[in-house]
Structures are given as C-alpha cells and as structure tokens.
Nucleic acid binder design. Structure first.
Lengths: 144, 144
DNA sequence: CACTATTATTTGATGCGTCAACTATTGACA
DNA sequence: TGTCAATAGTTGACGCATCAAATAATAGTG
C-alpha cells in the first residue's frame, strides 16, 4: 500500500501552509492575507474592493472585514466612488504607508529564509508547479 | 522593482491552499484536515489524541474539536486509557470505517486530477521542495 | 510521603475564510 | 419610464486553526 505516500503532497501542502501562516504572522505582525492586501494598496494608490477581491482571490466578505479592521486601525481610508455609489474606494493613509514599509522589510527577511537554499531555477520550477496544480484543481470544479 | 515577483511564491502557496481546501471539501465531503485525521485512524486501529496531534501537526485543541464532532456523528469512539487516565484512546466505529472508504475514493480522484500532468519525478521534486521550505521556516523560528 | 514538574485534554477568545441571504445602485431594454 | 438583471458591499452562520489558561492525572525527587 502506498496510501500514505499518495496523500503526502496534500499533507505537505497543508503543513507548510499552516506553518507559513503562523510564522509569517509572528515575524511580520500581519497575516499573509492582510499583507497581500496591503501590498496591493501600496501599489495601487486607490482601488475598489471588488478589484482587491479579484487580485487576492479571497471572498469579498473577508475583504470587507479586513478593511473594516484596517480602517479602525487608521491604516486605510475608504470613500464612496462619487460616480458609482456601489463601489467603495480604498487607499492607504500616510500612517498606513509608513507601517507597510516595515512589514515589507520583515517579509523580505522571512521569504529569504524560506527560500534560502533555492536556486533561481528551482524557484521558477516551484512557481510553475504550484500554478499547474491550481489550474488542475480549477478544471476539476468545472468538470463536476 | 520585482516586488510582486518576490512574494509570488507565498501568494501562490496561499491561493493554492485555499482553493485546495475548498475543492477538496466539495469533492470528498470532508476537509483536508479531517480527512487526514480519519486516515490516521484508519491505519492505526486505536490511537491517543496526543499521537494524532503529533502526526497531523495540528493544535491539540483542534484535534479535540474534530473528534468531538466525529464522535457525535458516530464515526469515531473514544475511551479512556485504563492504564493512564490522562489519555483518551480513539478508534473508528464500524460505520466510520465504511464511510472513510468512500472518502478515500473521492480523494484519489481529486488527487489524480490535481497532479494529472505531473511525472513521478516532478512529484518527488515538488515533495522535496515543500519539505525544504518547511524546514527552513522551522529554523527561522528557532533563530529568532 | 509531600511537592513540583510534566503530560493529556479541554475550553474560551480570537483570526481568517466560506457560503448564502440581503441591501443598494446601476444598466438595459421593452 | 417601469421592470428586471447584474454588480458592489455587508452581515450572519459556520468551519477550522491558534494561543492561553484551566483541569486532571502521573512521574520524579528530596
């Protein structure tokens, strides 16, 4: 029986992800999701929640909650799009912009450690494999 | 700036994991964690929660809650270890054993789809890379 | 034997994600 | 223009994980 072998990739993926989230949070002070969200805001100046949702691939409910918290923390400011009252536009506050610079530094360190012994070639290979799995899973959905 | 490039592995890992969890659940009817837990029980006959915790690398609080639910669903039976009243021994019920056979079938299909275009060689490579990252992250913790 | 770890499990608070249901706006078209 | 569909965001219920604190039982030691 190769049972345990066959599942091992899912197991490894899960163990890695859980460890990654926990450690990333410890090191940078924000969760990976929140960091990614801030990263988008950092590059985008001002952006709608729907656009954030598309980038991050996270449920829009989760986006709403992150932003609510970030707004309460003074990291982010929101306003309605005057030309379409359905959409909310989000941007970093000046304070937020300062904070994220620190997060980014920590993240750099973390990432460097995580990939310390990976060659460029390996990193690309890994990236491609992850992307392939993702697309395979997506197709499974449709095929159901 | 190669900013978005540099984070892309974490991004990809997260996107993949979230998609994986959601889809795995849809397809098999159980979450990856719960499946792994059942898998352990399937192979172990009777096992303590602490041992499960070590295998799965999941917080023991989460183990308790999974088992509570599984017990309520009649999948699992728990009893105290008569020779050490601290430990709880867990085993699949007959019903549970039948159920898991079905889950396993679904899981096989899911996994096959996820890795459909991966050669054996690639799968091993991927496994090794995931393990390396995990160990790199662990070391980071200690280094702090 | 009493005292102090250590170990196993549980519970409560919290973070983050999902889905489903609901509101508000906008767009399109008979 | 009135109606209906699509889009953006929010909220509530829920699943699953984490940490910290509490409880029990056992082990080790002077």
């Amino acid at each position: 029986m190769t049972d345990s072998k066959e599942t091992s990739i899912i197991d490894k993926l899960q163990n890695l992800y859980l460890l990654l989230s926990a450690q990333f949070g410890n090191c940078t002070g924000v969760s990976p999701s929140r960091f990614r969200l801030l990263q988008q805001l950092y590059h985008a100046d001002e952006i709608s929640q729907a656009a954030l949702q598309k980038e991050l691939q996270i449920d829009s409910a989760a986006i709403t909650r992150h932003l609510k918290q970030l707004e309460a923390d003074g990291i982010v400011a929101r306003r309605m799009n005057p030309s379409d009252n359905r959409v909310t536009l989000v941007r970093l506050t000046d304070h937020g912009r300062e904070e994220i610079v620190l997060y980014r530094k920590e993240m750099e360190r973390f990432l460097a450690q995580m990939l310390q012994d990976f060659s460029m070639e390996e990193q690309q290979q890994l990236s491609r494999m992850l992307a392939r799995m993702q697309s395979n899973i997506r197709n499974y959905t449709e095929g159901e």
